[in-house]
Design a protein around this nucleic acid. Sequence first.
DNA 1: GACATTCATAGGCAAAGCTCATGAATTGAT
DNA 2: ATCAATTCATGAGCTTTGCCTATGAATGTC
Lengths: 303, 303
Amino acid sequence: MNVTLRQLRAFTGVYRTRSITRAARELGITQSAASLLIQQLEAQLGVKLFDRSTRSVQPTLAADEAFHAAERMLSDAQGLSRRMRDLAQARAGRVAFVASAGAASALMPSVLAKFRASHPDIEIDMRDVAADDLVPRLSTTDAEFAIGSVEGEFADMTIETLTSGRLSAIGRRTADFAARRALTWDELAQLPTIAMRRETRIRMQIDQALSAQGKRLDPTYEVTLINTALAMTAQGLGLAILPATMLPADQFPTLIARPLVRPALTRPVSLLQRQGRTLSPAAQAFVATARMVLAGRTAPASG
Amino acid sequence: MNVTLRQLRAFTGVYRTRSITRAARELGITQSAASLLIQQLEAQLGVKLFDRSTRSVQPTLAADEAFHAAERMLSDAQGLSRRMRDLAQARAGRVAFVASAGAASALMPSVLAKFRASHPDIEIDMRDVAADDLVPRLSTTDAEFAIGSVEGEFADMTIETLTSGRLSAIGRRTADFAARRALTWDELAQLPTIAMRRETRIRMQIDQALSAQGKRLDPTYEVTLINTALAMTAQGLGLAILPATMLPADQFPTLIARPLVRPALTRPVSLLQRQGRTLSPAAQAFVATARMVLAGRTAPASG
DNA sequence: GACATTCATAGGCAAAGCTCATGAATTGAT
DNA sequence: ATCAATTCATGAGCTTTGCCTATGAATGTC
């Protein structure tokens, strides 16, 4: 057999109280059990730890030395338990995940704010990457999940749609614009528009879908960052062509989104996880928050 | 129940080998036992530690954290065992004891040398005190035993005589002196003598014994330190009046001791221990050495 | 000298821990 | 695609451990 923490607990108890009976009471066991534990430990270590008479229990020099080591191990054990309990309850820990640039800038800020409020001590490590890198980064780094728009399926990955935004025209809440229920892609030709560059995933999806119908988008401006497009729109430079989900209502209160139809295109925002890997409790809590926050954003395509 | 070292051993094994089967082999238990230990630990900590499929065992983030704490506790446990084993075998440790000034200077050096040779890693803390302080110091400090000459009995102390030296006249190995078997105290009056000061224990014993017989010692010189007396004797200044045991043969090869008779006085050198207190293994080893070295010195009262 | 307290030990029982046997899932080879 | 091999999980059954109660022995107290 081997030294056990049980024995060490009895040992430190007896050492501190100088009494087997008192230590046993502390541990909630009988005096005889405590006596046995001490004997076992002595046999195990090959050292007499206490000079015992029926009247007194005197630690030996060996016990003096062993005491510190024992206390350290016990406090380590307690620390481990506590730390794991904190992790389990998502009161501590770290969430590392990947987000596509678009999701990171337009969607995640509100999620992060909400999560931070409920889990102030969780460290968050969000890595925003180009859409193409989303899956590779998730596979090869210690990121626990990814959030962004992906097409198709991936081996060893589970995909869950968190929210999905219809591709919309976003513009200032003018009487004219607000009155519209929707716009067709054809109508856009008459208006100044701000779209994402051709290299971006969003734009590629649009161009592909439109060209299938023999149409094409001919934007007035082309930008790289979603926020740039929204800012320009807010300045009245044109309509931003984006998924409705990408409009943070609180950040651009003057803007509203109106779905584009013929064809109606939707762009899902998905949660990707590696199959067979449990998320850490902290990550689970984060994902739950993301689901909640983003689900509340799917319906109101109009502001 | 509580976390056990057994569980932690299984955990670190699985963590390192990424396999329950291999870890079980290392621990010398069956795969199912190891599997159970991991499940217990997970339940105990409330955290999933491994993502297990039938084909792979992947540590979770919680496991990464727990691993270091677990390793530390296990190495602490091993360190404790090893340290205790060393103490038990007197390969490590510390011996603290009290010695009367006389014993410390005349008797202990050879004991210390012998002990150091066989137990090089044991730290020795010898405290030389006035004879009167021997017992008080042993009672109140962390000294494990005391060596010196004491009279009478003491509560809670066991006394064992290690060696006992007859009070002798010590002088240079001249033909005259070497021819003598013994000297009487009366004969000393005719000769130059060197004795300890009246305040010392040795001298008090002498004065008391002689005055009981209506005699008295009238030394030519009175000194405090035994070594001083011996050095003076070696210079031919007179005969030193000391217990024969106090003459280190190797240090003063030119000197020999001849017992004093009428009355013959002996002065025991005793080992004192606190009753009911086990000596540390190191101290036991030291005491054994002292017994051996000093026993070898009792017989040859003559050089 | 009787009493109270404390530690050690023995007997018995409940629980824990292990092994063996088996099942389910997955990988690699034929 | 099927089969063999490997690996983890689970259930039954046995052994060992661990604990409690009861009792004995020693020691200090009134």
